[in-house]
Nucleic acid binder design. Sequence first.
DNA 1: CGTGAAGTTGAGTATGCTCAACGGTGGTGG
DNA 2: CCACCACCGTTGAGCATACTCAACTTCACG
Lengths: 250, 250
Amino acid sequence: MAHVSANVIGLCDAARHGSHLPLECANCVSRHLAMCAGLNPDELAHLARHITRRKLDPGQTLFRESDPAISVFTVTSGAIKQYKLLADGRCQVTGFYFSGDLIGLPEGADYPVTAEALTEATVCSFPRPRIAELVGRYPALAEAVILKLQREVTSAQGQMLSLGRLSAEERIAGFLLSLLDRAPECVNVDGSLSLQMRRADIADYLGLTVETVSRSFTKLRNAGVIGADRGGAVEILSRDRLADIATGPA
Amino acid sequence: MAHVSANVIGLCDAARHGSHLPLECANCVSRHLAMCAGLNPDELAHLARHITRRKLDPGQTLFRESDPAISVFTVTSGAIKQYKLLADGRCQVTGFYFSGDLIGLPEGADYPVTAEALTEATVCSFPRPRIAELVGRYPALAEAVILKLQREVTSAQGQMLSLGRLSAEERIAGFLLSLLDRAPECVNVDGSLSLQMRRADIADYLGLTVETVSRSFTKLRNAGVIGADRGGAVEILSRDRLADIATGPA
DNA sequence: CGTGAAGTTGAGTATGCTCAACGGTGGTGG
DNA sequence: CCACCACCGTTGAGCATACTCAACTTCACG
């Protein structure tokens, strides 16, 4: 509900100022989540002039590791994974991304990871030089970008703890909790969790094998912490016990 | 050499403009590395007005996980580690920081990690609200902060790959390489590497135990990739073979 | 209903952990 | 000045967690 009214206000502002804010932005569900948030309508119109939109099918790659990083993206719908590959096929998923998330703005000239759609997804694409320029011009945009990057860092630090020091079961518990907290679109009205990714993706994210992921889910199910899969959604029976497991004993 | 002349120029600029740029900044070794880089002397003077400096002894903590994040820091000398602790004592080091690095600028109100000095170290401390304000005012500062955060994200992604998918030996090899690349102050004139941290810190960074770290060093030594410890410095005998090991076979 | 992909379960194994002992080094005090 | 001690690093032996390989089940889709 709050989302809808925010969009309506955005539209009115744009109309009042007579700026050529595209309808896509005015109606954008993730506008108040993305780096666009905090920009005034004129600034947004300026930014929007350089936008192209892109729709992705499941499994489709948005960009590849070591490709030149010519575009920056905001996820507007669906789910995206980023990952690094080794020559022998080992894979590490570095993160899952949902509506409002910013991806493809690395330090260097090339993308350090590959980005691939997990579900049908849409992204807004900006030319990177444009973003650099606008960041210098609009402090609100700079602050929004900084906030996104800070979030990425904090989340990565938590993930390092998980990968380096947690048992398989603890990692799974922590993963489910982080989805509950940070991915509202994965949480159904009944409180269950729609995992947008395969077991293999979870395994590659948590540094485990599919078998170990599967066994850990079974353990949690037998312990009564989660319920049976119902149409690809996991019931969370006890969030508290999940939290206890995630942080370990003692 | 280049560093010295840069400092001299900085001093001259400040004098010419008549701004009250403190001597500490004018002579700062890490000025061209830190977020201060790119600021003109007046901007730097403005930023410097809010600086306090702090000297840390080995083992001294700069801030603690879940403390309110009231200050942001730039490392100006020495080595700092950041880490997360679990209730049962398990520890994950999330990063090592050297001259020019920015720490303590998280997304939320509290620090998500603890920062502790490994060696004698000095830091510049800025009040966080001030930084937020100046980031909005000086685009060059915003860009510098963004660059620092991007670097942190890229490095974290590499670390996730290491923790999630590499063997003990591969992790050690990758760790040595990253120090060679990213920590110039650890590299001696003879090309050897002064590890500023204990085996326990390396273990907690790489998600291993001290014993495994020690065994991996021994293996690399026996393989002729690194040389014997000489006064706490590791000789790098073959950087190429180190790189081969770090990325795995095939 | 048949087929292929995804997920689950089982048995055996390996990598890295635990526990324990030993050696080197630097700081301190007799 | 040297003995002592604490801390750090190394090495060894046995063990546990998660991996590998393999079979089987479930589900979506034709």
